[in-house]
């Protein structure tokens, strides 16, 4: 079966609907046929989707060996590795898009990771949970303790999220590093983008997840 006939026969919409929300939004931003590196690709859901429906040359890096084994055993090109240590060896401009979904807050050196992403890729797609969401602010203010929500589910002593940030923080970092925000959006868990989509301050208050597309200015 060639790629064209596969695109026609695969139940594309079904696959997309079952995909994690942020992955679905990321997939919508990626042009067909693009070269994509998905850092923290898990079992490879996004790269498989991009290959099957967009004809992308999509590859992944994943830190959890069980997920890597599952992905490779499924025929997907996935490397065991992590964002902090396994980006520097890729040549400049290897990819059209480098994706980092829900991982930025867990890496050791977020600034260096972003630099590497925009060295090896033309565009960086970064999604992260927004620490500026009103519920977190309220809980911290009201209880005086590290806030716990569905998105930020683990206690402070167990969380892998060592570098949480807000949407405003991310805008600041992008401008300090000289990155152009090509696109951005914030959504709640239900995937609703309106009505505050155009206003960073409101998004910072009501958005649970943020997704940015950056490039070097």
């Amino acid at each position: 079966m060639n790629d064209a006939s596969r695109v026609a026969t695969e139940p594309v919409r079904y696959v997309a609907k079952n995909m994690r929300l942020d992955l679905r939004l990321i997939a919508e931003m990626i042009a067909p046929g693009a070269r994509v590196l998905d850092i923290g690709c898990g079992d490879g859901t996004l790269i498989e989707y991009l290959y099957r429906t967009h004809g992308c040359d999509a590859r992944g890096i994943e830190i959890d060996m069980a997920e890597v084994t599952r992905a490779v055993a499924h025929g997907l090109p996935v490397m065991h590795g992590d964002a902090d240590n396994d980006l520097s060896q890729y040549p400049d401009g290897s990819f059209d898009y480098v994706v980092l979904s829900r991982t930025l807050q867990a890496v050791e050196r977020p600034r260096e990771v972003l630099r590497q992403m925009l060295r090896i890729g033309r565009h960086a797609l970064v999604s992260f949970p927004n620490f500026g969401h009103w519920e977190l602010r309220w809980k911290l203010l009201w209880t005086g303790r590290m806030p716990n929500t569905t998105v930020w589910g683990k206690p402070w002593y167990e969380t892998p999220n060592i570098h949480p940030c807000t949407i405003q923080d991310f805008f600041d970092l992008a401008s300090r590093e000289g990155y152009e925000v090509e696109k951005w959006l914030a959504v709640d868990e239900g995937g609703q983008r309106s009505p505050w989509r155009r206003f960073p301050a409101l998004a910072n208050m009501f958005g649970e997840q943020a997704l940015f597309q950056l490039r070097k200015a």
Binding site: R59, V68, L76, V78, D86, Q89, Y90
Partner: peptide, 21 residues
């Protein structure tokens, strides 16, 4: 083996790398 996988990345190769427990 990881050095091989990284060198392959450096060459822009399509590479999977798995360490089996």
């Amino acid at each position: 083996n990881r050095a091989v996988a990284r060198a392959l990345n450096g060459a822009g190769a399509n590479v999977s790398f798995v360490e089996i427990a």
